[in-house]
Design a protein around this nucleic acid. Structure first.
Length: 470
RNA sequence: GGAGAGGUGGCAGAGUGGUCGAAUGUACCUGACUCGAAAUCAGGCGUAGGUGAAUAGCCUACCGUGGGUUCGAAUCCCACCCUCUCCGCCA
C-alpha cells in the first residue's frame, strides 16, 4: 500500500525504452530534476558514492536483489565527463572572477582597462559552452539516478516475488463459520449499502458509493484509527493537501518513474498530482529542512483520500472495493535519525498491528523479499488480513523504512548533536490502515447467518453504541 | 478576477553594477573578567561541490526560481512562483 510499492521491473536504463517524462516543476517551467538540485547537488537517490566509488559492486547488488540492470558503462562515461567538465568550468569561472576583479580595481584607480578587457574576450562564450555541457551531463546522470531503486537492507531475504516473502507471525484464528460465508459485495448490496453501479455511473470502473450504516461504519473506522494513533501511539494528527506539485511527487519517489500510476490535474500551465498515499504529503513536510536531533523521531499521521490509476492491474480484483481508484487511508509517517530508524520500523508495524488486534481481525505479518519491495524501501513488512470469502490473507498495511533514499531527494536533514553537521534523516511510512480494505475485513469476518454484521466493540463508541448493523 | 507592496544568512534588517558570501543588530558557540551568573570585552558562527590525510587551507556555486544584458549582477531587464494589503467573489 505504500507509494510506488509495486515491484520494480528490470529496466535497462540505457536502452531506448527509458524516456524521462517531461516533468514540470511546480514553481517554474523547467524540468523538476534540474530545478530542485540547482545542478550542484547530486540529485541522486542512492548515495552518490555508490555510483562513483563502488559502481560495479552496486550494480551487482541491484541485479541480485532487485533484478535491476544498471548500465555501468554509460554511468562511468557520463560520470567521468561530468567530472572533467566540472573542473574545467570551475577553472574558467575562477579566471573570469579574478580578471573581472582586476578590471574593477583598475577602473577604481582610473587606469585604462582596454588591455584587460581584451584579455578576457571570448572567455564568456567558452564558459557558457562549458556550463551547458556540464548541465547536460548532470541531467543525463540525474535521469538515470532517479530511476534506480533503493538497495535492500541486509536483513531482507533475497527473492523474486511474493512467493519468496517470509511469514514472521500470525495473530488471531480465522473464525469457523457454520454457514456459507458471503463476500463483502453480497453483504453490502443487500441494503444498497455498497453500490458499484452508482460508482460506475458517476465516475467509472473502480469507484464505489457507500450508503447508510455501512458508510457510517466506514467513517467510524477512520475516526477510530486516527484516535488510536494520536492518543496511544504518539502521532501528531495532520490535515494535508491531497493535490501536490511535481516536486513533492519526486521527493518521495513517485516521479519520474511512476507517473502512469497517478491521477493528475492541469490548471493553466500548472500540473499537479493527486496523492496515491498521504506518505507523499506527510513526508514532504520535512523537505528542505534541517531538524533538531532531539526532536526526532517525528510521528505524523493523517486520514486522507488516496488516488491510484491502477494502470496495469486491469484484470485483478475487479469485484467489490478491494482495489479502487479512490480510497481512504490512515497513514503513519516517521522521520527518524539514522541510528534509530530500524527500531522505529518495528514500532510502527506494531502500531498497525494494534489496529487489527483491537478490531479482532486475524492477520499475518510478512517480511517482504527484495524483489517484492517498493521502489523506495530498504525493508518492508506487510500485514495481511484474513478474508473468509477468499479463504486467504490480503494486504491491508505496508510499513517501510526508506532510510535516506527519500531524504536525499527531499534534502531532509537533521543536525548531528556531536558534530553540529547536517545529516540526512531516515524516513518511514506505513498504513494504519487502509480503510476500505479494513471495512471489507470487518464485514466478512463479523457477518452473521442473516447477513447482518456485528460491530466490533472498539468501533461502537463511534457508532452511537450500535452493536449490529442489519 | 482587479489594484498595489514585497521575497537577502536561525530571526530582524542594510545593500540599486566592481575585493559582497554579503554591513549591522539579535540568537547561538568559545575565551577573558567573576566564587558563580548577569552585564561588558575579544573571537567564532550558513549550505553544497571540487582538491586535500584533514572536521586545515585553497577553488567554485548559492541573496524566491529560471533566463537575459555585462569583463563583472543581490543590485539592471524578462518570465514564472510565493507572501502580504485593499476591492470583488466564494465554502
Amino acid at each position: 500500500m505504500a507509494g510506488a510499492s509495486r515491484p520494480v521491473e528490470p529496466t535497462d536504463v540505457s536502452g531506448g525504452g527509458f524516456s524521462p517524462p517531461g516533468i514540470r516543476c511546480g514553481n517554474c517551467r523547467t524540468a523538476a530534476i534540474i530545478s530542485r538540485s540547482s545542478l550542484h547537488l547530486d540529485p541522486l537517490m542512492l548515495d552518490p558514492a555508490l555510483l562513483r566509488s563502488h559502481l560495479a559492486d552496486t550494480a551487482a547488488r541491484l541485479r541480485q536483489t532487485r533484478g535491476y540492470a544498471l548500465d555501468v558503462a554509460t554511468i562511468e562515461a557520463l560520470e567521468s565527463s561530468r567530472k572533467q567538465l566540472a573542473m574545467q568550468t570551475q577553472e574558467l569561472q575562477n579566471r573570469r572572477n579574478t580578471r573581472s576583479r582586476a578590471i574593477g580595481q583598475a577602473k577604481g584607480r582610473g587606469e585604462d582597462v582596454a588591455p584587460l578587457l581584451a584579455e578576457v574576450a571570448g572567455l564568456g562564450d567558452q564558459l557558457k559552452a562549458n556550463e551547458q555541457a556540464l548541465a547536460e551531463a548532470q541531467v543525463k546522470l540525474a535521469q538515470i539516478a532517479l530511476g534506480i531503486p533503493n538497495l535492500p537492507h541486509d536483513s531482507v531475504p533475497v527473492g523474486k516475488d511474493e512467493a519468496d516473502n517470509i511469514e514472521v507471525s500470525r495473530w488471531g484464528r480465522p473464525r469457523e463459520f457454520e454457514f456459507s460465508v458471503k463476500d463483502h459485495v453480497e453483504l453490502g448490496e443487500r441494503h444498497g449499502w455498497l453500490d458499484g453501479d452508482a460508482g460506475a455511473k458517476l465516475s467509472g470502473a473502480r469507484f464505489t458509493v457507500l450508503r447508510g450504516q455501512l458508510a457510517r461504519l466506514h467513517r467510524a473506522l477512520g475516526q477510530f484509527m486516527l484516535d488510536l494513533h494520536t492518543t496511544e501511539h504518539g502521532y501528531l494528527e495532520c490535515n494535508v493537501p491531497v493535490v501536490v506539485n511535481a516536486d513533492s511527487m519526486q521527493g518521495t519517489g513517485q516521479l519520474p518513474k511512476f507517473e502512469e500510476d497517478l491521477f493528475a490535474t492541469e490548471v493553466g500551465e500548472t500540473k499537479r498530482y493527486l496523492i496515491p498515499t498521504a506518505e507523499v504529503s506527510l513526508t514532504n513536510l520535512v523537505r528542505d529542512t534541517i531538524q533538531e536531533a532531539d526532536a526526532l523521531p517525528l510521528r505524523l499521521t493523517a486520514l486522507t483520500l488516496c488516488f491510484r490509476a491502477e494502470a496495469g492491474s486491469y484484470g485483478r480484483d475487479t469485484r467489490g472495493m478491494i482495489r479502487q481508484h479512490q480510497f481512504e487511508k490512515v497513514e503513519m509517517v516517521q522521520i527518524a535519525r539514522a541510528d534509530q530508524s530500524h527500531a522505529q520500523l518495528e514500532e510502527m508495524v506494531g502500531h498497525a498491528e494494534s489496529v487489527l488486534q483491537k478490531l479482532g481481525l486475524p492477520y499475518r505479518k510478512m517480511l517482504l523479499c527484495s524483489g517484492d519491495m517498493g521502489f523506495t524501501a530498504v525493508k518492508t513488512y506487510d500485514l495481511e488480513v484474513w478474508l473468509p470469502s477468499q479463504q486467504t490473507y490480503r494486504e491491508i498495511s505496508s510499513c517501510s523504512n526508506c532510510e535516506d533514499f527519500q531524504a536525499r531527494r527531499l534534502q531532509a536533514r537533521v543536525r548531528n548533536l556531536d558534530s553540529g553537521k547536517p545529516e540526512l534523516v531516515h524516513t518511514l511510512n506505513g498504513s494504519g490502515l487502509a480503510i476500505g480494505r479494513t471495512l471489507i475485513a470487518v464485514m466478512e469476518n463479523n457477518q452473521n447467518v442473516d447477513g447482518s454484521i456485528t460491530v466490533p466493540a472498539a468501533l461502537r463508541p463511534y457508532m452511537n453504541g450500535v452493536e449490529r448493523i442489519a
